[in-house]
């Protein structure tokens, strides 16, 4: 009886250990898998050719990733350019100006945004943002656009990234001691002077980390962008041009075109690149955030 009890305990412990280690290893296993599967294309073409050439003609054996990389950068850039100022100002308002009641109401509402499935954002983008760009924004600038564009992708992504940046920034602002604000007010500083010179200054590394976290989310987001960005394999030259970001390329083609030689390997290389970039951004922002927690 006694022995059985201890045996169960040991088995349960070991089992959970294995599961924990496994979930920790998944990322490495995935990266490793992608690496090996992308070997065939790396064997015939140097990496720099793949990354910096624009020709995407799989049937002719040309796999230039450049249009997809620039597409990703354009869409992410627009998303971040919209999201950072908007979400920072929102976070500042909520943390420094809003009365407590309003803050307690709005915070969960904003966090809720993060829980909306990305396909819903995509549909919303198609129904609202795309026509808006086609019928109003492009004509306003005297050009034509189908609406499926870098701008549409950027706007949808920006809204998806809001809750992340706002949430993390709020935590960071909360970590700035209240007495530090008092010290500034006591010297006769206005609310805005206090925010600009004291709160933001103290919170700057954390705000950067929050932005990088948002950026990495935007970089890898697939569904919503795929639905509104247009998916044309050309380097965009303006925000009203269509773009074809890397995640959309993979999602659209993997499983469809695999009879073409090397296609499979090329897509998995793209996936590997995406994984590494997002991982890199995440690690950077985690390091900054951990450092801040250590110093407060």
């Amino acid at each position: 009886m006694q022995r059985k009890r201890f045996l169960k305990d040991i088995i349960a412990g070991r089992l959970m250990l294995v599961l924990t280690v496994f979930s920790g290893l998944i990322v490495f296993l995935m990266a490793l898998g992608l690496y090996f599967r992308s070997q065939p294309i790396l064997a015939v073409k140097p990496l720099s050719d793949l990354l910096f050439s624009s020709g995407w003609h799989p049937l002719r054996g040309e796999f230039g990733f450049l249009p997809f990389i620039t597409g990703t950068l354009w869409v992410t850039g627009v998303a971040v350019a919209i999201a950072i100022p908007f979400s920072l100002l929102t976070a500042i308002y909520l943390s420094e100006y809003a009365p407590r009641g309003l803050r307690e109401w709005l915070k969960p509402l904003i966090d809720l945004l993060a829980g909306i499935p990305s396909v819903v954002y995509g549909v919303w983008g198609v129904l609202v943002i795309v026509p808006l760009i086609k019928d109003y924004i492009a004509p306003f600038y005297g050009t034509f656009s189908t609406g499926y564009s870098v701008l549409a992708g950027g706007i949808v992504l920006a809204i998806m990234v809001f809750p992340i940046i706002i949430h993390v920034s709020l935590e960071i602002f909360n970590a700035v001691p209240y007495e530090m604000r008092e010290a500034s007010w006591a010297l006769g500083a206005t609310q805005w002077q206090t925010i600009k010179h004291v709160v933001l200054r103290k919170a700057l590394p954390g705000v950067i980390a929050a932005s990088v976290l948002g950026l990495s989310r935007a970089f890898g987001e697939t569904m919503a962008v795929l639905m509104v960005a247009g998916n044309v394999a050309k380097n965009p030259t303006s925000v009203l041009d269509p773009a074809y970001p890397l995640p959309a390329l993979i999602a659209n083609n993997y499983g469809e075109m695999l009879s073409i030689p090397l296609y499979d390997s090329a897509l998995l290389l793209a996936a590997l690149i995406l994984l590494l970039v997002v991982l890199f951004f995440n690690i950077i922002s985690r390091i900054i955030l951990v450092r801040i927690e250590g110093s407060v």
Partner: peptide, 27 residues
């Protein structure tokens, strides 16, 4: 501005010694 405050624990602003003293003057 008419009053200087010393709190229970010192809270220097997140800047240099010089800038801490110059802060009030600058604002």
């Amino acid at each position: 501005k008419k009053m200087g405050l010393l709190s229970q624990r010192p809270y220097p602003l997140p800047m240099s010694i010089y800038d801490n003293v110059a802060y009030g003057l600058r604002i």
